[in-house]
Design a protein around this nucleic acid. Structure first.
Lengths: 241, 241
DNA sequence: ACGATACTGCATACGACGTTCGCAGAAAAG
DNA sequence: CTTTTCTGCGAACGTCGTATGCAGTATCGT
């Protein structure tokens, strides 16, 4: 009967106290993983690298975590803990969800690897559940089915990730010219000037809105607001923003 | 002066005709990669696996592709070629973009690995450029800045991916009970019944809308429509759908 | 016609990765 | 004190992406 207790790490007890005291715990491992990812990206989060920082051998990590994926889940949930729900409870669901989106945005900006980590996975750690609970609470007064609410929350999370990804991408482009957007731009203009793709050509020819620097926050707020009203409108909104 | 000609594979000529004739070409490699990914997912697309199917040695692939990432780019662009723009040109941009979204959806459903492949990357192969051109053409009459149009196209692509991902996930759940959603559901209900998270509890308690099977297409159309009107509304829409 | 040139496929190998196995030792339970 | 159950971990396995160098072949310049 060596049946593995729980399939999910959140159902598996961290410690069943018989043997010697563990040298660390899930929290410490998650913290090390986050630090590594913050510094050098998700690819830098290697079992060996984490072990080295902890002063342990690679195999030791498997006493705390069944697989590298679980380590990533721990990391995701840890940074989800940086979300604050203090600004919620305005009574207006749109304001609450916009505030929630801003919180998410700041967490993504603080930990850009989170965009990659959550691109495939659907994280459902305790902190993610807290997030879900608060989002549902904001929509409590709204008269749509719970199913619709959950779908709207998921969809609007995807939007937030998508927008922050754009923001991060062109932030990198601004500071280091990673010679990747360079190649992309060269390729795009070459394609556009090839004759076909007239709409693309004119779109590329039109200069980015003004010569002055465009702030990303207003854009973020506007898009999120519009998507939310589009998703959850019961009556026609009064064209906010 | 052995300067690598282009950084992007789309700028690099496939063949500069001096030596002996190559045994295959990019198209064949991309086709093999797509077949492997269709059968067993993205992880099955290994340089060695592709080489075996082609009857070649692993190192030979690097005569056609600089890295595995480029192979994935070839695959992405190949399946982007399955998009059809025949249903476009209705004159109503919303109808055109909805038709485009449906096309994308069917491609994602035919090649679920495409969701993972494009989750991080922003593909810009020739076929992706064609897609962009058609999307811009649909929005030609609309009086918003090209910048806004591009952002809207990107955002709405993210929505489509997000929704199809949900659809694929619960399609898998329906047929094979991958014992993963099992653990997730168990965990969620346990959390919900722990007392905190009242909204989540009621949302989980409410049964999925009816006992009858819910078709995904109407949901897809409704959400995409709402998001698009939310993103690009110039006046208040007449609450379509 | 014929070397020089510039390509081809490929055998081999390197280093890094996630993960497994088994064992010596330590703490708690009986 | 014995037994049980945990601990950390040395060592290894298998797989992966990729680099290197070499023998062979088709084209080009003359």
């Amino acid at each position: 009967m060596t049946e593995a207790s729980g399939h999910s790490i959140w159902l598996r007890p961290e410690r069943a106290g018989r043997g010697p005291a563990p040298a660390f715990d899930r929290d410490r491992i998650a913290a090390v993983g986050v630090a590594l990812a913050d510094a050098d990206g998700l690819a830098a989060v290697t079992m060996r690298a984490v072990a080295v920082v902890l002063g342990a051998a690679p195999a030791s990590l498997y006493r705390y975590v069944a697989t590298r994926d679980e380590l990533l889940e721990l990391m995701i949930d840890r940074v989800n803990g940086e979300l604050s729900y203090a600004a919620l409870g305005s009574g207006r669901w749109l304001d609450d969800l916009l505030a929630l989106a801003r919180q998410s945005r700041s967490v993504y900006l603080a930990h850009p690897w989170l965009l990659d980590a959550t691109a495939t996975r659907v994280p459902l750690g305790p902190k993610a559940v807290d997030y879900l609970e608060h989002a549902l609470a904001a929509l409590a007064e709204l008269d749509v089915s719970p199913r619709t609410k959950l779908e709207a929350i998921g969809t609007y999370g995807a939007i937030v990730r998508s927008m922050v990804r754009m923001e991060v991408t062109q932030r990198l482009a601004g500071q280091s010219v990673p010679q990747w957007q360079q190649a992309q731009a060269e390729y795009l203009t070459r394609v556009a000037s090839a004759g076909h793709h007239p709409h693309l050509a004119t779109a590329l020819a039109t200069p980015p809105p003004g010569a002055e620097k465009q702030q990303p926050e207003p854009l973020f707020d506007r898009v999120v607001t519009r998507v939310l009203t589009g998703l959850l409108q019961t009556a026609c909104p009064t064209s906010a923003v």
